[in-house]
Design a binder for these strands. Structure first.
Length: 134
DNA sequence: GTTCTCACA
DNA sequence: TGTGAGTA
């Protein structure tokens, strides 16, 4: 998902009346979930809540968890764990990418030092391009 | 008309 | 969690 899409998804757009129709949650429930720290909708200058697409998605997630028998503490725990899983995945990807770059740099160095060496695996333009400005 | 906060005969 | 009061 692009940065622009991410910005769109976080835009404060919907007043609570729209969100109640989107989620079939009562205003009371939505405000209570906010009070419990499960969502953080933006506010207008007049102190009215404005919800983003992400807020709506999160509310639907909350509703889904509640319907599966969790209480709010359970929902909070699920969110926390989900975030930890996401962070762990990002870390794995970061390390994998780091190793890949290191390996490519080593191959590039070998190719420069020993051009046309027998058995040398030529780096493709695609791989090389990672080391130059676009 | 909608939303906000607060309180509960 | 619902609902009504009194506001903004």
């Amino acid at each position: 998902m692009s940065v622009r899409d991410e910005l769109r998804r976080n835009m404060p757009l919907f007043p609570i009346g729209i969100v109640t129709k989107l989620t079939e949650l009562s205003p009371r429930q939505i405000r209570y979930y906010e009070q419990q720290g499960l969502i953080r909708p933006e506010r207008t200058k007049g102190n009215q809540r404005l919800f983003s697409f992400n807020d709506v998605d999160r509310l639907l997630q909350i509703k889904s968890y509640l319907e599966k028998g969790l209480n709010l503490a359970g929902v909070r725990e699920m969110f926390k764990q989900n975030q930890q899983v996401l962070e762990a995945k990002r870390e794995v990807e970061r390390v994998k990418k780091e190793l890949t770059e290191r390996e490519l740099r080593r191959m590039l160095k070998q190719q420069i030092i020993h051009p046309n060496r027998p058995g040398q695996i030529p780096l493709t333009h695609g791989e090389m391009s990672r080391f130059f400005r676009h």
